[in-house]
């Protein structure tokens, strides 16, 4: 990629704000990490270093439940984010590359609808609806509800991206006898990747962190991490939740590091 003069691109203060932004994002997590090593049951008072809560996560009486909850959360988040991103990508193509049509406004309203309705309303209404059609509550009900809820979060970054891509590339490809399908998969999709990744990541964290809807549509025996964590408030927040959170962070940072080095070796462009 040709890089025009860096001075044109860079704005004074932007790097500073970005670093400040990262500090703001990570500062609370430093607290979480520190207190996961607390020797006492407290998340407020520091009483010395201990790995007790990490042991508790793996061997404690509730370890099985938390493990299952974590697995459920990730399975649901990955599937829900993938499906909703796919749906959103197709929808964005129709909306941005489909010309003017009557139902365009209505379509946009429909796609943004899950955003606009308070979650508790969606939760209660969806539960009533599932019960009415006899859909047994379980992992599947959570998944279906999450897919619908995640669509606007995936759609908005994707459509914002697509609006920035002139269709000259696709036109050129089609002038060279590429089919529409080829133009879509070979030209538009690669150009869309940053938008699709953004949409997927947003949908993923929305699904991973959803409590209200999940709490209503889940069935017996199916917990996700948020429902397990909110539910355990009855016994007070203990450092074991901090330990789980820290391990999730660790895992994600390992994944990012790997992807960084993978992308470095792929640095042929």
């Amino acid at each position: 990629m040709a890089t025009p003069g860096n001075d044109i691109k860079s704005y004074p203060g932007f790097r500073f704000i970005t670093i400040a932004c990262l500090i703001i994002l990570y500062a609370p997590l430093v607290v979480v990490t520190i207190y996961s090593f607390n020797a006492s049951k407290s998340i407020t008072v520091w009483e010395g270093l201990s790995l007790h809560w990490y042991a508790d996560v793996f061997t404690g009486p509730d370890s099985g439940k938390f493990k299952l909850a974590a697995r459920n959360s990730f399975v649901i988040a990955i599937i829900a984010a993938s499906v909703s991103t796919a749906i959103a990508t197709l929808a964005a193509t129709a909306m941005v590359r489909g010309g003017q049509f009557k139902l365009r406004t209505v379509s946009f309203g429909l796609i943004s609808l899950p955003l606009m309705v308070p979650e508790i309303v969606t939760a209660v209404a969806t539960l009533i609806f599932f019960n009415a059609i006899g859909f047994d509550r379980g992992l599947m009900t959570i998944l279906v509800a999450h897919i619908a809820f995640c669509i606007p979060f995936a759609y908005l970054p994707i459509s914002a991206r697509m609006q920035g891509i002139e269709d000259t590339y696709e036109q050129a490809a089609m002038d060279l006898y590429a089919t529409k399908r080829q133009a879509f998969t070979k030209i538009l999709m690669p150009l869309m990747m940053p938008g699709i990744i953004s949409g997927f990541l947003l949908a993923f964290i929305v699904s991973l962190d959803d409590f209200i809807i999940t709490n209503f549509v889940k069935g017996a025996g199916v917990e996700t991490l948020p429902t397990a964590i909110f539910g355990s408030v009855k016994q007070g927040i203990k450092p074991n939740i901090m330990a789980i959170s820290t391990m999730l962070l660790g895992l994600s940072i390992v994944m990012v590091t790997i992807s960084y080095f993978v992308s470095k070796t792929d640095n042929t462009k």
């Binding site: 932004c21 997590l29 962190d209 409590f211 964590i229 939740i241 962070l249 994944m255």
Partner: peptide, 13 residues
């Protein structure tokens, strides 16, 4: 990823 990782941790926490 760096921007979204913190959101892997539950909002309540």
């Amino acid at each position: 990823f760096l921007i979204t990782i913190p959101y892997w941790v539950n909002l309540l926490i």
